[in-house]
Amino acid sequence: MQAPPVNTFFSRRRTGVSFIALVAVSVVMLAISANSVAVNPVRIGQSVVTGVLSVFRGIGGFFGDTWNSIAELRRVRQQLEQAQARLVALEQFPIDIVELRIENAQLREQLGFADTLTGEYLAAVVVARDPGNLFSTITINRGQRHGVRDGLAVVALQDGIQGLVGRVSGAASGTSQVLPITARASFVAARLRDTRYDGLVGGVGTTADMLLLEHVNQAARDAISFGEVVSTSGLGGRYPPGLQIGRVREVGGEAFENSLQILVKPIVDFDRLEYVFVLIDSGGAQ
């Protein structure tokens, strides 16, 4: 019996062979560009097990949260009544804070937004976002030839307030990709401005509209107040210190845990982000 010629074998299975080749190319590219350890079977096993565990943890968390939400609802109702009473009192307050903020923003605009920044910076326009929903990418119209390089911090000014947007994750010749602080891949060494506790701010995805401040000592629970500003601490050297990240919205975490989990509302509204500043040189501590 004679084996069929090789070219006949491949031509008959052209689709299958092409599929395997394309998948192989994709996997190799992914393994290299993700700096992955996919060739290590132990790490693959760990990753899969961790993934399965996190799915179960998510399901368990869902039922746990539902159960807890009943008691939470009662507490929220009480808080709502207290807040309504407080709102009535605040409405009598003679100074209109909103008006002051608008006036402040207009004055800053006249003076030039850039005056609020120290050090060397580069203004840029947001030209595109991520084409899908799995990742968060902001593309700006400044690249290597303008002096932008990987790792630089990016800030924005909105309503007269300066807030951290993220950092440059890939600088091409004329454009750059920015990884926003809302992305799950983003971590920022942070500090609570008034209470001076350190922590780590991580993104929870673009749709969540919140950030998660973790690794804050339990002792800070009573000291932290609603609305306290969270800014970069400068630890690790990835971001310059003093850049505002967001404001505390909710202090969570169980009493038996070592650290708190604090929800932080970003200063920057990413939905209406049009102009940003790349901090080429932060000019030292701010």
């Binding site: 992914l30 993700a34 084409p131 990742f135 990709q177 891949a185």
Partner: peptide, 15 residues
């Protein structure tokens, strides 16, 4: 066009 590692979408779309 994304911060995704090269090959991520390529693999999914090929399959």
């Amino acid at each position: 066009a994304s911060v995704a590692p090269l090959g991520f979408h390529a693999l999914l779309r090929t399959i």
